[in-house]
Amino acid sequence: MAWMNSCHFAIRIEEPDGEKLPSHLNLLARGLKLNDIRCLLCSYRVESLNHTLFSCEIALEIWSMVRIWVDIPIPFFENWLEWLSWHQGWTGSSRQKMRLYAIVATLSWILWRYRNAFLFDPGKMKKQELYDLIRLYSYNWCKDRGKDCISWTDWLIKPL
């Protein structure tokens, strides 16, 4: 288990076999009987944390928008460990790395929130809002940290 701290928040990254969030796959592994373990968002594959954050149709769509926005060639990942390994080896400046980490952490948080809203409060979050929420929340986290003085307009144009 690893912890990454950035922008006044921490994201807990679990080993693939120690995943703790209540995805359908984890609930099934804990002995809960479910009628359907397919992804709530795409109904295509078994719902796991990695699927929800990296390979679900909606995740792929959001990742694609973020790749265009940040304007760097981010590869595709299967899980958090692959993302972290790539991020640690990426040659951006420390400020760029912090901003990119905040963006990806926000992307993950928003996708998980969307999944939960889809399950518990359908209609509360709209798919069209996800990208804008990622840009807004990641900006606020970086700005509120106190060390990053980028304007909202500049953030929207070139966050890194």
Results as ranks from 00 to 15, higher is better:
residue 113 R to M: 10
residue 22 P to R: 11
residue 122 P to V: 03
residue 98 M to W: 01
residue 121 D to N: 15
residue 68 I to N: 06
residue 114 Y to D: 02
residue 38 R to G: 00
residue 34 L to W: 09
residue 143 K to G: 02
residue 75 P to D: 08
residue 63 W to A: 00
residue 106 T to C: 11
residue 125 M to W: 09
residue 5 N to L: 13
residue 114 Y to G: 03
residue 131 Y to L: 12
residue 107 L to T: 01
residue 15 E to I: 01
residue 143 K to P: 03
residue 130 L to C: 05
residue 123 G to S: 03
residue 30 R to A: 09
residue 73 P to N: 01
residue 109 W to Y: 11
residue 125 M to R: 07
residue 50 N to C: 10
residue 61 E to V: 05
residue 148 D to M: 11
residue 58 I to W: 03
residue 55 S to R: 03
residue 109 W to K: 05
residue 88 Q to N: 12
residue 68 I to Y: 02
residue 15 E to Q: 13
residue 141 W to Q: 09
residue 5 N to K: 15
residue 110 I to Y: 02
residue 77 F to L: 06
residue 53 L to K: 01
residue 144 D to G: 14
residue 110 I to A: 05
residue 84 L to R: 10
residue 94 S to G: 07
residue 137 Y to D: 05
residue 12 R to G: 12
residue 144 D to I: 02
residue 35 N to V: 14
residue 84 L to P: 01
residue 21 L to Y: 13
residue 5 N to M: 11
residue 97 K to F: 07
residue 134 I to N: 03
residue 63 W to C: 00
residue 50 N to A: 15
residue 75 P to E: 08
residue 31 G to M: 06
residue 145 R to W: 15
residue 83 W to E: 02
residue 25 L to S: 14
residue 27 L to H: 07
residue 145 R to Y: 13
residue 127 K to M: 11
residue 37 I to Q: 02
residue 117 A to I: 06
residue 30 R to S: 10
residue 83 W to D: 01
residue 81 L to N: 12
residue 71 D to P: 02
residue 74 I to F: 03
residue 112 W to M: 08
residue 150 I to T: 14
residue 43 S to V: 02
residue 48 S to Y: 00
residue 156 L to W: 00
residue 95 R to C: 08
residue 158 K to F: 05
residue 32 L to C: 14
residue 106 T to I: 04
residue 25 L to Y: 09
residue 36 D to L: 08
residue 149 C to R: 13
residue 129 E to N: 13
residue 32 L to G: 07
residue 119 L to V: 09
residue 143 K to C: 04
residue 111 L to A: 04
residue 86 W to H: 10
residue 124 K to H: 11
residue 153 T to F: 13
residue 151 S to H: 06
residue 127 K to E: 13
residue 41 L to K: 00
residue 150 I to H: 08
residue 41 L to H: 00
residue 21 L to Q: 07
residue 21 L to H: 08
residue 112 W to N: 06
residue 152 W to F: 13
residue 63 W to I: 05
residue 15 E to H: 10
residue 20 K to P: 01
residue 160 L to S: 08
residue 27 L to K: 12
residue 59 A to L: 00
residue 147 K to V: 12
residue 17 D to A: 14
residue 11 I to K: 14
residue 134 I to L: 06
residue 130 L to H: 02
residue 3 W to G: 05
residue 87 H to S: 10
residue 153 T to W: 11
residue 79 N to S: 04
residue 85 S to Q: 11
residue 100 L to A: 03
residue 98 M to E: 12
residue 52 T to M: 06
residue 55 S to W: 00
residue 62 I to G: 00
residue 66 V to L: 04
residue 148 D to K: 00
residue 74 I to S: 02
residue 127 K to R: 15
residue 3 W to S: 11
residue 138 S to N: 09
residue 131 Y to V: 13
residue 2 A to H: 12
residue 105 A to W: 01
residue 132 D to Y: 09
residue 33 K to Y: 10
residue 141 W to H: 14
residue 65 M to F: 11
residue 70 V to Y: 04
residue 56 C to W: 05
residue 36 D to W: 07
residue 114 Y to K: 04
residue 124 K to C: 09
residue 105 A to R: 02
residue 83 W to I: 06
residue 86 W to Y: 15
residue 133 L to W: 09
residue 123 G to E: 01
residue 35 N to R: 15
residue 96 Q to H: 10
residue 128 Q to I: 11
residue 47 E to G: 01
residue 41 L to Y: 04
residue 116 N to Y: 08
residue 141 W to T: 07
residue 16 P to M: 05
residue 72 I to D: 05
